[in-house]
């Protein structure tokens, strides 16, 4: 990993007050869990919508989307990527540095929020289970969204379609589509580490881990390949 690229990427992502934009969703998640717990200590009625419905279905993918498409996509949009690409740094190292920052920031934000939510909902072990699921799936999401930022000029839109339509809608209607849903991997991993009545895994742990790895590796390789063939926008002046 290239430390220079990682540090500039982190500064661009978190510099000044930009990191504040990442906080409302996790705060909403923890606040909602805390409020619900205050009203009714038994989480059987509200635990699943908060943990799975908000935490894994919205907070984790949305934070991953904003961060994952931002670490490279923002530089592509404003043209500053040229300053990094016009150097002999291997494209693999550039992608790995960007991915490390994206996955690191996404993990830090989501795993912390999900851990606190898990502790409020159930126990420290449940919180740890949710946090581990966030770590694994942050890497998978980040790799996919990073690759999207190199594949299309509308990475956020396509990422939203994946999260909302594929995972949110089709994942609940078509059993087969769950195999390609990172959200379902998160639920499966957390449910295996800390079984709880508020989590209903629809995939086995080995499948969830293997598919998470496949998304992470596939997305990374795709991003490296696309960056090797990166073209500046086709101005003809």
């Amino acid at each position: 990993m290239n430390a220079t690229i990682a540090s500039i990427t982190a500064r661009a992502l978190l510099g000044r007050r930009r990191f504040l934009l990442l906080l409302p969703l996790p705060l909403l998640l923890v606040g909602l869990a805390w409020l619900a717990h205050g009203l009714d200590p038994d989480p059987s009625a509200w635990g699943e919508p908060v943990v799975a419905g908000l935490g894994f279905a919205v907070v984790l993918p949305m934070i991953a989307l904003v961060v994952g498409t931002g670490v490279l996509g923002a530089e592509i949009d404003d043209g500053t990527i040229v300053h990094v690409l016009a150097t002999p740094v291997a494209r693999r190292d550039i992608v790995l540095a960007k991915l490390a920052v994206a996955a690191g920031v996404t993990t830090a934000v989501t795993a912390t929020a999900m851990f606190l939510t898990g502790v409020i909902v159930g126990s420290v072990r449940f919180g740890l289970g949710l946090a581990v699921a966030c770590v694994v799936c942050s890497i998978a999401y980040s790799a996919v969204f990073l690759a999207l930022s190199l594949l299309t000029r509308r990475p956020v839109l396509l990422g939203l379609l994946y999260v909302l339509i594929w995972e949110g809608l089709l994942g609940n209607l078509l059993a087969g589509s769950r195999v390609l849903s990172i959200q379902q991997y998160a639920v499966a991993i957390a449910a295996e580490i800390a079984p709880s009545p508020v989590l209903h895994a629809r995939l086995s742990l080995p499948l969830a881990l293997a598919m998470s790895a496949a998304f992470a590796v596939g997305g990374t390789l795709l991003a490296i390949d696309r960056l090797r063939s990166f073209r500046l926008a086709g101005e003809t002046s």
């Binding site: 500039i8 500064r11 404003d78 043209g79 040229v82 300053h83 690409l85 016009a86 090797r228």
Partner: peptide
């Protein structure tokens, strides 16, 4: 094309003026 090693001898000042303003 697809040869980053070339930048050991090549310097480029592109037409887009963007710079990372926070640096």
């Amino acid at each position: 094309w697809r040869n980053p090693e070339i930048y050991r001898v090549l310097g480029l000042v592109a037409d887009r003026e963007a710079v990372p303003g926070f640096l």
